[in-house]
Design a protein around this nucleic acid. Structure first.
Lengths: 333, 333
DNA sequence: CTGAAAGCGCTTACAG
DNA sequence: CTGAAAGCGCTTACAG
């Protein structure tokens, strides 16, 4: 067990513990040769400052809270990788808070996070309710803890720094692509449950459709495969369709499955597109055309912005919009 | 900002800070009415003990390290949910350590984790190298930090508690299923990169094949779709095949895509099965028969075991094997 | 059942 | 550039 403490290092390096502390935290304040002597002892002893003592004394934790509302999102893992890689570079540890669906107790979480004394908060993915947004604002304004939103859409956000892509534009471009293919009856397949990010996709779709003088057709279904399969079967009996843009890859694939079961060939009869560029898109047949969201980068850039904020550096751009791209595959012509 | 401390509570409740501390940590040691008075003040003030001070004084952190070697695994998110739900119940906070692929610096991580003073460690998923295993043993034996492996296969493990399913048996059963369908040329499609969990699947496959007097055929390919598509095309030109069991759903789907491109009907000509029961399996056409791994439960049970160990409770079963099941869909007959 | 006091292992003004 | 000392906010023997 024999934990080595700062005293052990000081003793062996023949300096005071204050000097050891400085050698670690403010090396420039220590004379080069003593600094080296101290650092040598540190590595000999394998000394690592106790995080609690350090946090208590300095009021800094070099810890960030990663708040995840929904762990099952396909993009989660990839975004976490982006965050983790940057966190590693800047020596931050990640505290993971997965929101509980049953009872979102912001009050409790607030206290937990404050007790944990995190230096920053990064909020992942899509949905943030008004309550949650207020909670994040409280953290920032009253507790002075920097907050960054990554891949999170909040329409009235003009307070918190964010990193995302322009979903409205992406949907606009994708819709234009189908229009240029000559499609006239293009449906946007969105979700029954309301997601702000899907609202943006719908807006972009509507803008392109209206510009082209076509009539907008938005269908809302479930993300659950067995449910939406039924729904597609029923719905498209009575609707003419030659284009489908789904808000998620998996929904697009689900639609393609129904189309194939009904002997409707894709992309000959219907062009289909999705969002995200997941593995579903590549494994599907035909392979799915979709918007590629640079999810790793969103995480990495978000964490980088957070490190700047935690370090009191100036962040000029509040709302960072990364480039997306459209990946054309076999489901469109 | 005004952080409320234990002194504020003590003052207002007219007791010493020791009593406040006891009211929180050892309520039974405090007279009921003082206890209630203290707790009332605590909730009035919204007091939450500072985690650092607490950790420093008590040497306990109510924090567990969740070590994730590979975040991109499909099972990751679901297992995290299981862990998080139980962690929440027992009031543990999760520190997330995502291993760096480039340089697995166990030494550094060990120091980090020790510095963080976690009460327990949970190691997720599949691979653990000999070095990593040694590292975990060191944590347990020298630093006295309980460790639990979840869904992690280590052949020589007889030290660390683990929660998993019996992959050998699952593969054995799946192979038997295809044999009963009358398949004679059943391939196991495994990975080029060596994974211990896939070794187990191969063993189970071999056992069933040998029992049936058939000849074993193991093919190894890449998990990357574009690579294995090529590979499948090439390989099966020269091989007779009427059954395929892939070590992962996505590989099975990839194989089905190649089969369809070559106008080989599934399951008429070839039965195909996978492992995990991911969304790929359901979105594929035909829908994929596969082994269902109760991944949420593995996480939840693992965390539960860890709470017991951290709480010095006895854990009778060192190696917990949860039930799996085989989900028959359209890719087998 | 309760309080005074030591101590956990650091950081950081303050002197020098 | 370096050291002595206070203090961060708790827990926990030790008395009573």
């Amino acid at each position: 067990m024999n934990k080595t403490t700062i005293y052990d290092v000081a003793l062996r390096a023949k300096v005071s513990l204050a000097t050891v502390s400085r050698a670690i935290n403010n090396p420039e304040k220590v004379k080069p040769d003593t600094r080296e002597r101290v650092l040598k002892v540190i590595s000999e002893l394998g000394y690592k400052p106790n995080a609690f003592a350090r946090g208590l004394a300095s009021r800094k934790s070099t810890t960030v809270a990663v708040i995840v509302p929904d762990m099952t999102r396909a993009s989660m893992a990839e975004m976490m990788n982006g965050i983790a890689d940057i966190a590693r570079v800047y020596k931050y540890t990640m505290l993971l808070y997965i929101l509980d669906h049953d009872e979102l107790n912001e009050e409790d979480m607030l206290r937990d996070i404050i007790a944990a004394q995190v230096d920053g908060i990064i909020y992942l993915n899509d949905e943030v309710t008004a309550d949650q947004y207020d909670f994040l604002l409280t953290m920032r304004n009253e507790y002075n803890i920097p907050v960054v939103l990554t891949n999170t859409v909040y329409p009235d956000n003009n307070e918190l720094p964010s990193v995302s892509i322009d979903y409205e534009k992406a949907a606009y471009e994708m819709t234009q692509l189908l229009i240029k293919e000559g499609r006239k009856n293009i449906f946007m397949v969105s979700t029954v449950r309301k997601y702000m990010v899907n609202d943006l996709k719908e807006s972009g779709y509507l803008r392109a459709i209206e510009e082209a003088g076509l009539s907008p057709k938005i269908m809302r279904t479930s993300g659950r495969v067995n449910v939406n399969t039924e729904h597609f079967n029923e719905y498209f009996k009575n609707h003419v369709v030659d284009g489908v843009i789904a808000v998620r890859d998996s929904i697009a694939v689900s639609f393609m499955n129904v189309a194939r079961a009904n002997h409707i060939s894709i992309p000959e009869k219907i062009s289909v597109a999705g969002f995200q560029n997941t593995k579903y898109a590549i494994l599907a047949r035909p392979q799915l055309t979709c918007v590629d969201v640079p999810i790793y980068d969103i995480g990495a850039v978000g964490m980088r912005v957070l490190t700047k904020l935690m370090n009191q550096e100036e962040v000029t751009e509040k709302e960072i919009v990364l480039d997306h791209s459209i990946i054309k595959r076999q489901s469109t012509r």
